[in-house]
Simulated scan of single mutants.
Amino acid sequence: MERNLRMVLIFVVSVIFLTGLAPLVVHADFDVDNLFIINEPSSGSAGYDFIVEFASDGTSLSTLIPQTQNITGMRRVAFDSVSGHLFYSVSCWSDQIFEIREVDSSGALINTYTHEDFGSGNISFVFDSAGALHIANNGYIFVKQPGEAELVRLFELPETGIGDLEIDSAGNLYLSDPFVNDTVYKIFADGTVISYVDSADGIDNPYGLAMDGSDNLYVANSAYNKPAIVKVTNETQVSVFNDKNVESGILDMTFDNHGMLYVSNRSQETIQVFDANANPTLFADAEDGLDDPSSMAFITTNSSCSTDIEPDGDVDGMDLADFAVHFDSACLAELARAYGSGS
């Protein structure tokens, strides 16, 4: 295939030189989705917590936050596409540390966020499409606006346990309560809170939540009882998504850009991937470095490849000749497609 692509490039260079065609700009963008996972062995008093990185094919890449930082109580992680930074929570009862930390792509600490009303219990959070960070902790909803260092308390919640927090395209929040009421709450922007689904709908110790591109909510029953994962449409129709191949202990779920559902299971020490028909495949397990996994976050990096090497806003024969020397099969494949080659 690469040989065919090289032949396409040689042909294009020849045409430009021999016919004097106007220069063309050939530019391609592609996404690189890496998955960051919090390992939380401190939940079983078995060590310090850390964050590991995986490529989209399940290859273990690196450790972003090492165990040598001696962090306990690390639970939730989320990616801020505005700043390009990761945010993770620390709820450490022994040291009375309840805060959110922002780190860059190297794991270096950028900022720490807390509030006088933060207290014991989980801290869960989610970013909206505008980059505002919505937070649930200690019976309240807080928000951090993009670029702001202050957390603002918005309103009080009913008595509830804090599990996972999700958001739909309209800005409504969804909070799972695995500890007190076996309920997933829907929280409107004005502070109105309703019971969205509960035990009468087959909800049993709900923890991990995930929202697909059509605002359907997926709820993981973290107890042993089945079904393991239920789907709730935006018309509140509840159905079983998966009732096999998954045991108790699902603490987080997330969708990738291709509609695949990733499920983090602490008791099995696995990350499984489910397609639209709920067929599972194993993404990673303990042999790949998972150790009591709790939360996951995808980072999508937009990379660019261009044949405008100089750059001067166009592509001429010199650009293409240089591109051929510095052969890049991914960019060359895009170039071939741009000129109508099937392969």
Rank of each mutant, 00 (worst) to 15 (best):
N279Q: 06
N279L: 13
D212T: 08
M260E: 13
N245A: 13
G213M: 06
N279V: 12
E235K: 14
N279F: 04
D292S: 01
A278C: 03
N245M: 08
F274E: 12
I229K: 08
N225K: 05
F283D: 01
N225T: 10
V230D: 04
A220S: 12
E287Y: 09
T254V: 11
P280A: 02
G259W: 07
G259V: 03
D291E: 05
A278N: 01
A228N: 07
N265S: 08
N242D: 13
A223L: 13
H258T: 05
I271F: 13
N242M: 01
D252G: 11
V219L: 07
Y224L: 07
A220W: 09
I250E: 12
R266F: 01
A286S: 13
Q237H: 07
N265R: 00
I229N: 00
N221Y: 05
S267T: 15
F241C: 11
D291C: 05
V273M: 09
N221S: 05
N265F: 02
G249N: 12
L290M: 05
A210I: 01
M260C: 15
N242G: 05
A276D: 10
A220M: 07
L217Q: 15
T270M: 10
D288H: 09
V240Y: 02
T233L: 09
S214E: 15
G289V: 07
F283L: 06
E269V: 07
S222R: 03
Q272W: 03
R266V: 00
Q272I: 12
G289D: 14
L209F: 00
V230S: 02
V240R: 05
N245L: 12
F283I: 04
V238N: 02
G259R: 06
D252E: 12
A278H: 06
V232A: 11
I250K: 09
I271H: 03
L251K: 07
T281I: 11
K226M: 15
V219A: 10
K244F: 10
E235W: 13
D285I: 00
E269T: 02
Y262H: 13
F255G: 00
S267P: 15
N257P: 09
S214H: 11
T270H: 12
L282F: 15
V232R: 10
R266H: 03
V240W: 05
I229H: 09
Q237E: 09
S222Q: 11
T270C: 15
Y218Q: 06
L282I: 08
N225M: 13
S214A: 15
Y218L: 07
E235I: 10
F241E: 04
V238A: 04
T254S: 10
M211I: 01
V232F: 04
F274I: 14
M253D: 11
A220C: 04
M260I: 08
P280K: 01
E247Y: 03
T270F: 07
E269R: 02
Y218K: 05
V273T: 14
N257F: 04
V238R: 03
N225C: 11
E287M: 13
L261T: 01
M260R: 08
N265L: 03
Q272R: 08
N265I: 00
H258L: 05
I229W: 03
T254K: 11
F255C: 01
G249L: 09
V263A: 06
N277E: 14
N277A: 14
V263M: 15
P293T: 02
N242Q: 08
A210M: 02
V240C: 09
A210H: 00
